[in-house]
């Protein structure tokens, strides 16, 4: 996978890292609150069949300019600006978790521009009887069990190539990275990941695939039905034995669902 960079006029100082891999039809991937994994297995699987273009949100990786993005509208318009600059041909827009929330907002705002949408365990809705877990108060060691059905596998994927948590210098870098990433994510997800998307989902006209890990412990799979009923041309696929990071945990199954649907 290779990175290229886009510079945007607004917000000032915005530079977007875009990871690219694979050949085929264009597919845009918008990551979740955790960013990309090292050698992300989901991106790798998608790249076997598609030309994957994965911009990183400011605050993530080498993308900058997060101070100028404060709310959902800022982020949705930023993402549409990035999409425009990428000059893709009728891409499938795939978003995971927070990225799914952003992709859904983009498709609701610019419904004439986004025709193919894939929401992988998207955030953005809230049900009092099935509350989404508060990721912001979780400690790092709790995350693999929350994000993966197979917590041990998740642990391996999440720590791969990331150094040693006992090393104070590494720990400081980790805290800075975490503060940047989740600090940015908090503008969309804290304290409750609802910025009014339910009022706008009806505007989505894209053909929409919704994918959920059947064992999602962060955003329960019941949210899938809510997205399914609110978006007219949509289908819901549940992947067994998979958690919230369904794309990383069962990349082949999610790839197959995308291939079958589009």
């Amino acid at each position: 996978m290779k990175s290229k960079f886009l510079t945007l006029k607004r917000p000032a100082g915005t530079r977007v890292e875009v990871v690219e891999a694979g050949k085929g039809r264009d597919l845009v991937f918008l990551h979740g609150a955790g960013g990309h994994l090292q050698d992300d297995p989901f991106l790798a699987a998608l790249a076997t069949k598609y030309r994957v273009v994965a911009p990183l949100l400011p605050g993530y990786g080498r993308s900058t300019g997060e101070d100028g993005l404060r709310d959902m509208l800022d982020v949705a318009l930023h993402a549409l600006d990035v999409l425009e600059r990428l000059k893709l041909r009728s891409p499938i827009v795939v978003g995971h978790s927070m990225g799914g929330m952003i992709a859904a907002e983009m498709a609701a705002i610019a419904h004439t521009e986004i025709a193919k949408l894939c929401l992988v365990a998207p955030a953005g809705l809230w049900r009092d009887d099935q509350p989404v877990v508060d990721i912001f108060s979780k400690l790092p060691f709790e995350l693999p069990g929350l994000l993966f059905h197979d917590a041990e596998k998740g642990q391996r994927l999440m720590t791969a190539g990331r150094g040693n948590m006992e090393d104070p210098e590494f720990l400081k870098q980790f805290l800075v990275m975490n503060a940047r990433r989740l600090g940015m994510a908090g503008k969309l997800l804290f304290p409750i990941p609802d910025r009014g998307l339910s009022e706008r989902l009806h505007r989505i006209t894209a053909k929409t695939l919704i994918v959920w890990g059947a064992e999602d412990a962060l955003i329960p799979a019941t949210y899938g039905a809510a997205f399914r009923s609110a978006i007219s041309k949509s289908r819901l696929v549940k992947v067994p034995k998979a958690g919230h990071a369904v794309g990383q945990e069962k990349p082949e199954a999610v790839l197959k669902a995308i291939r079958d649907f589009f």
Partner: peptide, 17 residues
Amino acid sequence: YPGFADAPGYRTVKTIQ
């Protein structure tokens, strides 16, 4: 609880550094 002591983004990157 340590998870409540310092929400990510509450302190600036400069301060953490």
